[in-house]
Amino acid sequence: MGHRDGTRDDVLPPHGATAARAAYDRRWAGDLRSAIRCSAVFLSLLVLIDCGAGRLTFVRGGLWVGLGVLLFLVLFPQRVTAGEGWLASRGPLRERRVRTDLLVSVRCLDGVSQRLRLRDMLGNRVEIDPQVLVDNPDLWRGLERDAYESAARGSLTCGETALRRISERVDRETALSVFRASGLE
C-alpha cells in the first residue's frame, strides 16, 4: 500500500491516465533558480563577511553552509502536477497526491501566504499556492472540471466559494494577458 516516497497506490492516477496528458507548473524552473540564487547569495555574504572579519574557520564555514542549505529548503518551490482525476505537489522531501475526482473539501487558508487545501474521500490532503493555478490555466481547468464533477456527485461538501474565487482570478488574469498581447491594455 505505502511507498517510500510517500505516495500510495490508491491515489495514483486512474488507469488510462498517462504522463503525456499531465499539466505542469510552467514557472517552477524559474522559481527553483531563484531559490538557488537567493541561497547562494546569502551563503556568499555570510562567508565574505566572516572572512573579512578574519573569523572564518572550518566550523563556522560549515555552519554557514548549513544555513544556506536550510534557506534553500525553505525557499524550495513545490512542483505542482495534475492529470485526469489527480493533482500532486512535490516538495524537497516528499510528494503528496489527491484524487481530484473524489474531492471532499477545498479550502482557502489565509495567513502570511495564501494556501489552497484540497482533501479527498481517501483522506489524502494537498496544500498549494492558489497563484500556481492562476499562472497555469491548464492545471486549473483540470482541477475545476474534476471539482465540479465531485460537487455534482455530492461528495464535495465544502469549497464551492473558494473554487469560484479562483475561477474569477484565473479568468481575470487570462483576460488581462489577452489584452496585453493585443496591445489593448
Rank of each mutant, 00 (worst) to 15 (best):
M1R: 03
G2Q: 04
V11E: 02
V11K: 00
L12R: 07
H15K: 07
H15V: 15
T18P: 01
R26D: 11
R27A: 08
W28Q: 10
G30R: 07
D31T: 03
A35Q: 07
I36Y: 07
C38T: 08
F42D: 09
L43S: 13
I49F: 07
I49V: 15
R55C: 04
R55F: 05
F58I: 08
F58E: 14
F58V: 11
W64R: 03
W64P: 02
V69T: 12
L71M: 09
L71Y: 03
L73S: 13
G83Y: 05
E84C: 12
S89L: 11
R94D: 15
R94K: 14
R96V: 09
R97N: 02
R97F: 14
D101F: 00
D101K: 01
V106N: 07
V106Q: 07
C108S: 12
D110S: 15
G111C: 12
R115K: 06
M121F: 08
M121A: 15
L122I: 06
N124G: 10
R125W: 11
V126N: 06
D129A: 06
Q131T: 10
P137D: 08
P137H: 04
P137T: 07
D138Y: 08
L139Y: 03
L139S: 04
D146E: 06
A147D: 01
Y148W: 15
A162H: 07
E168L: 09
V170I: 04
V178S: 13
F179Y: 14
S182F: 03
G183F: 01
